[in-house]
Amino acid sequence: MVNTFGTIQFKEMPSIASTGVVVGPMEKDSPFAASFDEILPLENEKDETYEQANTRFIEKACAVTIQKGHEQMENIDVFIGGDLINQLSPTNFAARQLAIPFLGVFSACASSMESIILGSLLLESGNAKSILAGASSHHPTVERQFRYPLEYGGQKPGTAQWTVTAAGFALLQKHAKNAPIITHATIGRVIDGGQKNPLHMGAAMAPAARDTIERHLKNTNSRMADYDLIMTGDLGKIGLSILKEMFQDEDSGVILQDAGAQFYGEDSFFNAGASGAGCSAAVFFSHIYKQLKNGVFNRVLLVATGALLSPLTFQQGETIPCIAHAIECRMEKRG
């Protein structure tokens, strides 16, 4: 393992043996819907709180991941996950049910890639053989905590994004057959561009995405053109436009894409697009994963972005610090 200013080169190159993505009813019309494993008809069932529903989504996505990986839960060494709710309570309660060693993480909407990086480091160290890692978000829970309860019916500006109801997880193992591998990871730095508007997250997170991508390209001696795709997670349509302007690279227009900008297509109901820890997890662990396995993509850089604010810091007039974590994946057939 080689570390160069936050970029890790994995000698063992952990495999993403399988993935599982479970989403809610509003996500059924997503352009990525055909790649999701399960679309649930309700965001919460009768007599179930939204937080309990969030936990159920996590448990279902983990079960799908394990089943597709032909593994047993008791063989998983560590479960790593996060969400957006106070004290990670949905993920904590899912870990209670899974009953395996647990690491809870929080990088807001960048939590999925933080989970994958930590899992890859554990595999690289030789202290684990199978890791379950990922993240989730749940629209009603996030609205109630960070904005207004759904019943309030508050209107949002065009810069706002819609929190995805989704849970996405991956099974990381050493040397899985015919599975994408993780060659590098770049750990994000906390970047604050001075933004204060919590309904314009794309502008707040774009500088963090640029910083991580620039460092990753420099540290791996790569150019944008060397990748089939560089996909950020939930900058949304406006944030992606800002990021492309920052780079002014002739290849950025095609190679740079964003999960949040594409998640709900061109439906204006969702304003600037999608967000949430489950947004990048759902897209990366479904559509992108399948494109790698099918040989459509050979080399991709996945960059999840997160805004590290809380309702309290916003009320106190603080600016919004942000972070972006990245993993580089390739497809390698192993016998």
Rank of each mutant, 00 (worst) to 15 (best):
M1I: 09
M1N: 10
F5P: 01
G6Q: 04
T7P: 01
E12I: 15
S15K: 00
I16Q: 01
S18G: 11
V22F: 04
P25I: 11
M26I: 10
K28N: 05
K28S: 04
F32C: 10
F32Y: 07
A34W: 09
I39L: 12
P41D: 08
L42F: 11
E51L: 14
A61N: 11
A63W: 15
V64L: 06
I66R: 04
K68Q: 05
E71R: 15
Q72R: 15
N75L: 13
N75C: 10
I76E: 03
V78R: 08
V78W: 08
F79G: 00
I80P: 01
L84D: 09
L84W: 02
L88A: 05
L88W: 00
P90H: 04
N92E: 09
F93V: 11
Q97A: 05
L98T: 08
L98D: 04
L98P: 03
I100Q: 14
P101E: 06
P101S: 13
C109W: 01
I117E: 01
I117R: 01
L118A: 12
G126K: 11
N127I: 09
K129W: 03
K129F: 04
S137M: 11
Q145V: 13
P149W: 07
E151K: 11
G158Y: 13
T159Q: 07
T165M: 05
T165A: 14
A167L: 12
G168T: 11
L172D: 06
Q173P: 01
A176M: 05
K177P: 00
A179Q: 06
P180F: 02
H184T: 06
H184P: 02
A185T: 01
R189A: 07
V190R: 08
P198L: 11
L199P: 04
H200P: 04
G202A: 12
G202I: 03
A203W: 12
M205Y: 02
D211S: 13
T212E: 02
I213T: 07
K218T: 06
S222F: 13
S222M: 12
A225M: 05
A225V: 10
Y227G: 15
D228P: 08
T232A: 05
T232Y: 00
T232I: 03
D234I: 02
L235E: 01
G236Q: 03
G239F: 00
G239V: 00
F247Y: 09
E250Q: 10
D251V: 08
Q262L: 14
F263H: 13
Y264N: 04
G265V: 14
D267P: 06
S268T: 08
S268D: 11
F269L: 09
G273V: 12
G273C: 14
A274V: 02
C279D: 10
H287I: 09
Y289V: 07
L292S: 01
L308D: 10
S310G: 14
P311H: 07
F314C: 15
E318N: 15
I320P: 03
C322Y: 03
A326E: 02
E332Y: 03
